[in-house]
Design a protein around this nucleic acid. Structure first.
Length: 452
RNA sequence: GUGGCUAUAGCUCAGUUGGUUAGAGCACCGGAUUGUGAUUCCGGGGGUCGCCGGUUCAAGUCCGGUUAGCCACCCCA
């Protein structure tokens, strides 16, 4: 029956299964961030409207969920975390130990047209390094992005970090068009594969004398797909040699670090990544499926001017964002989502409701105190029914309590995957034994119970 | 914000040229079966066919509107 109360367009209910998936992703993200030594932070979901209208990009401003609250304040749901981050860091910049390595997992809101992999509310994993301008910070951010995907089960064969460089684009173009036109030219380049050549030429001719020559240069630049090709290309350029070769060293350093960390084959040089990322200043990247399907799984880069613009301290920064919706889709398609995220470790099955039930409850409680997840049927049911419920719960093991076991003061442990059973004495070591069983499986040489 | 496509049970879908009480599989619940499950058999609940209006003796079916979803643009998570 269709309820008259549906979720708003682009918003999601999280039934237990979806919630389990969400928490699974959050766990992966938190683990990756912890491995790299990042600290978690958070901020209000509702912020003053100006926080976003002042400095966020035009596109983001268009998509704001904004309204006036009962106190007459103009407010907005956060469309991204970075302005809040800049405020918080700016307020305490003087006292924060550098580098500042912070991450957050938060729900963001953007009023946009829905599509596969895109909703109006989504969770985003953000990690940023502030106060460190060197290449090592960029490498760390890219490595963390890759690590988060790796933890989720993705491999370098599945996804690619397309790495580009707005600094280099700027250097390259500034000798050909006016500096203030570079941004617009980059926007034109972004469409180079999608629009007819005449139209591209027409647009380019607004910014330079010889659009045909410029387009040829741009195409050659876009062809670059490796460090070697980049070196070769830069050597063919006569002008601006010093600044370009300095930048080339940055590239060598960045890719060298990523190689050393074992993420070299996750990264591809790709100058087609240029735009939309208006506030980025240096290396930029987006992560895509190798298949070319789907939307960006993550994106980020260096934004050295943004924190100062948002009213805080003048801090160099780089970071990335990774959304839950696209990541989930990607993992789902590859079967990389664990099947029983809410499964208990043990499911207790009892026959009768006297001593067997008391034994089951006592043991279950002990196991729970040892931080294992234990379930059992809340109402009496046939032994077979309970076993079926155990199987459906996803528990790897069932604990069988029947008269014969209780008579021996023992419990029968059944591996629900293999069907093997083992009888364990209900002594003071039972909990420890079962903890071990949960980790490594049944003890060798189990007695086969029950054969018909 | 622009354009195109779609809407039947919780899910995937069938439903003939408009014609009695709208079906199937999966899922869920109960039973056969109070000591052995993911593969049996039987039964059950669940739909005013997205919503509003129109045409017609008659609309799930045709028409208009609307809402929601999907796809492309846009943009990125």
């Amino acid at each position: 029956m269709a309820s008259s109360f549906q979720t708003l367009p682009g918003f999601r209910d999280f039934y237990p299964e979806e919630c389990a998936v969400r928490n699974h992703l959050f766990r992966l993200w938190r683990q990756a961030a912890a491995e790299f030594g990042f600290s978690e932070w958070d901020a209000p979901v509702l912020e003053p409207l100006e926080l976003f209208t002042e400095k966020s990009g035009e596109e983001i401003r268009r998509q704001l969920f904004e309204f006036v609250d009962k106190g007459g304040r103009a407010v907005a749901l956060r469309p991204e975390m970075t302005p809040s981050l800049a405020r918080m860091v700016g307020a305490k910049a003087a006292s924060l130990r550098r580098p500042i390595k912070w991450f957050s997992i938060g729900e963001n809101y953007r009023y946009e047209r829905m599509q596969k992999g895109r909703g109006r509310s989504f969770y985003q994993f953000n990690a940023d390094i502030l106060g460190e301008a060197g290449r090592a910070a960029d490498a760390e951010i890219i490595a963390l992005t890759a690590r988060a995907l790796e933890l989720a089960g993705l491999k370098s064969q599945d996804v690619v970090v397309r790495l580009s460089d707005r600094t280099l684009w700027f250097e390259f173009l500034s000798s050909k068009v006016a500096p203030e036109a570079v941004g617009e030219v980059l926007a034109i380049i972004d469409k180079i594969e999608r629009e007819p050549q005449e139209k591209i030429l027409e647009k380019l001719s607004a910014h330079c004398a010889d659009a045909t020559a410029l387009l040829a240069d741009i195409r050659a630049f876009l062809q670059i797909n490796s460090l070697e090709a980049l070196e070769a290309f830069l050597n063919t350029l006569a002008d601006k040699k010093e600044s370009l070769s300095a930048r080339l060293n940055d590239w060598r350093a960045l890719l060298g670090r990523l190689n050393a960390m074992g993420y070299g084959d996750w990264v591809a040089v790709d100058f087609g990544i240029v735009r939309g990322l208006a506030y980025y200043t240096g290396f930029v990247f987006e992560v895509f499926e190798r298949s070319g399907e789907g939307r960006a799984l993550a994106g980020g880069g260096r934004y050295d001017n943004l924190v100062a613009k948002l009213g805080g301290a003048d801090l160099p920064a780089c970071g990335f964002g990774m959304g839950d919706i696209t990541l989930r889709l990607s993992l789902e398609e590859r079967g990389l989502l664990p099947q029983f995220l809410n499964a208990p470790d043990f499911y207790a099955v009892t026959s009768g409701d006297g001593a067997t039930q008391e034994a089951a409850l006592a043991d279950a409680s002990q196991l729970r105190r040892a931080n294992l997840r234990v379930e059992y049927a809340l109402k009496g049911a046939a032994f077979g029914k309970q076993l079926k419920a155990a199987s459906q719960s996803g528990a790897p093991f069932a604990l069988l309590y029947g008269e014969s076991e209780i008579a021996q003061n023992a419990v029968r442990v059944k591996d629900l995957t293999t069907g093997k059973e083992s009888l364990l004495p209900r002594d003071e070591n039972l909990t420890a034994h079962l903890v071990a069983v949960r980790r490594v499986g049944l003890p060798k040489d189990p007695c086969h119970g029950h054969e018909h």
